[in-house]
Computed example of a mutant assay.
Amino acid sequence: MVLFFLLVYFVIITAVIEIFVVLFRCTGLKVEISRFQVISMMTGTGFTTGESELILGHPIRRKLAIFLILFGAFSLAVIISSISQFLSEGLRTKEIITVALGTLLVFVVLKLSWIQRFFSRMFHQKMKQNVELVDLPVRDVFLTTKKDALVSLPIYKESMLHQKTLDIAIENHERLDFVVLFIQRGNVRIRKNIYATTLHEGDQLLLFGARDVLRSVFEHDWQIMEERQKDDVDAGL
């Protein structure tokens, strides 16, 4: 009987995980990232990655995460108390099966595409109504379509932009579908006269715009960046 209870408990936990994977997906988070983070929060392992910032920086995902953390803590207490009750008085199988079936029903309903679309619209509307722009993660502010890109482009000695200004290096840049947000030079961010500022080795350009336009305009520097990143990976940096 104890094994039966553990099996039902496992079914409930698995169903809860998948329910929250669906809910996180409705907020725009990828499935593989959602599942890993949900399991991490439920188990209370404290395993942190850069992906956790996608949850911490999103107000709706934070609320879902709070429930998951509490559920993970209380569910452990429930299983311990239930086993103790079984050992002393016997376990009420009917109630446990009812909870398991109810949880599975919620999961099945959430897997319906129209239900997921409903939650996606609801979460998006709630974000619009109740959340200030400053509270949103960068991804939700800038990357609203698949064509958008936010790129930090480093300037190397071999770069086309090295020792040049953007005004000189890129003709008619004001007509192109991109903007330079700022120049990062060491600990200093340059926001004034960006296009008239001479670029030096070690500078970083924060670019926002259409990905294909950025790749086309900064093709030479983009290739250098990718080659350097590949070399760093090969070198184990």
Results as ranks from 00 to 15, higher is better:
4 F>Y: 10
4 F>H: 00
4 F>L: 13
5 F>W: 05
6 L>I: 06
15 A>T: 01
15 A>C: 04
19 I>S: 06
21 V>S: 06
24 F>C: 06
27 T>I: 06
29 L>P: 10
32 E>W: 09
34 S>F: 01
35 R>N: 03
36 F>Y: 13
38 V>M: 04
40 S>A: 06
42 M>A: 00
45 T>Y: 09
48 T>E: 07
55 I>L: 15
57 G>E: 15
57 G>N: 15
57 G>P: 07
58 H>S: 11
59 P>E: 05
71 F>H: 00
74 F>N: 05
74 F>K: 01
76 L>I: 15
80 I>K: 06
81 S>F: 08
81 S>G: 05
84 S>M: 12
87 L>H: 09
87 L>Y: 09
91 L>P: 12
91 L>Y: 08
99 V>M: 02
100 A>V: 10
103 T>Q: 08
112 L>I: 13
119 F>Y: 14
121 R>P: 04
128 K>D: 13
128 K>G: 14
128 K>T: 13
130 N>P: 00
133 L>F: 08
135 D>H: 09
136 L>H: 01
139 R>T: 12
143 L>Q: 00
145 T>G: 02
147 K>T: 06
156 Y>W: 05
162 H>F: 14
164 K>M: 13
164 K>D: 02
165 T>Q: 01
166 L>Q: 07
168 I>H: 03
169 A>E: 12
169 A>C: 01
171 E>G: 10
174 E>F: 07
180 V>I: 15
183 I>A: 12
195 Y>R: 03
197 T>A: 09
200 H>P: 02
201 E>I: 07
210 A>W: 02
213 V>G: 07
216 S>Y: 00
219 E>I: 04
227 E>K: 15
227 E>D: 10
228 R>V: 13
230 K>N: 02
230 K>R: 14
232 D>W: 00
234 D>E: 15
